[in-house]
Design a binder for these strands. Structure first.
Lengths: 155, 155
DNA sequence: TTATCTGCAAATAATTTGCAGTCTT
DNA sequence: AAGACTGCAAATTATTTGCAGATAA
């Protein structure tokens, strides 16, 4: 089935297969949605985007797929204070580069910022090591977000 | 009504009244729950604790109260990846001191850590200023959390 | 007094799950 | 063939809302 030969074939599929999971059209559609529709997508966003390419996909499958990808570390799941989970590619071949989020609590706009990212990452790495040692955690990810009002909402 | 004369009378009630909101037994019970039952409480946790002191309180009121307190900046709301919001006193007279969270994604244990907090706060402050200037945001709060597996869950 | 609060029950909205049929490997 | 994956619809779960009565100021 040639659908497996997309540009994802080299990077994600191996990871999926490696865990004994399968590559399917639905999963491919989700992968595609994630890589073409930008960051911080809700499950609904991913569903809509995936449906375009694979109209039969069900919302439940999208949820199950995103959960799987998150478990495999390919996708990071986070939330920005509304009650919807958000998903985007985690660092890796597809990531747009590491960034953190700046969220407007009024209009819900999300800014991906990379300013200060180096200092942040340095500190995060250092903190991670310290916490891992002190508390015996194996740390896998972090969330760092700022909340406030954007210029427009501030008045 | 003497219920207003608790140890909260001096710090929170003024803030509440200042916004034209009222001090009520229900709100007092929530305040009390927050200050006696530790950090990162779910709405349900707060509800149960408040019920002890004020059995007639309704869950909806707890939600409304927590929302109000959050809006007034007295309480900080965050989530740790399960689908329940968590609440705790924000910095201020009641805070147990500024801390960040380390969350086990398996057993859901939450560790409040204060290690590195000074470096973190310094960086956060600096980042906040930079972001505020560059993106025109008025930043009010931040979330910084690490996720991983605790020692017990790591095997 | 009167606007704010309340508890309750019903309504939402996101996410999950059961299941029988369909595919990947 | 066997287990993994699917779509659908029904079930869950956290949170919100409408409303009539109660209450703080």
């Amino acid at each position: 089935m040639k659908i497996h030969k997309g540009h994802h074939g080299n990077c994600c599929c191996g990871k999926i297969r490696g865990f004994g999971r399968r590559i399917t059209p639905a999963r491919h559609a989700v992968l595609d949605a994630l890589s073409t529709r930008g960051e911080h997508l809700t499950a609904e966003d991913v569903f809509k985007a995936s449906s375009r390419r694979y109209p039969n996909i069900g919302l439940a499958t999208v949820y199950r797929t995103l959960e799987l990808f998150t478990k495999l570390g390919m996708v990071s799941k986070f939330d920005t204070g509304d009650d919807k989970a958000r998903y985007e590619f985690a660092d890796g071949p597809h990531a747009k580069g590491h960034h953190h989020h700046l969220v407007c609590t009024s209009c819900r706009r999300i800014v991906d910022y990379t300013d200060f990212i180096k200092e942040e990452m340095d500190l995060l790495r250092k903190t991670e090591e310290g916490l891992a040692k002190k508390y015996g955690f194996k740390i896998n990810s972090h969330v760092m977000q700022f909340y406030g009002l954007c210029r427009d909402c501030a008045r």
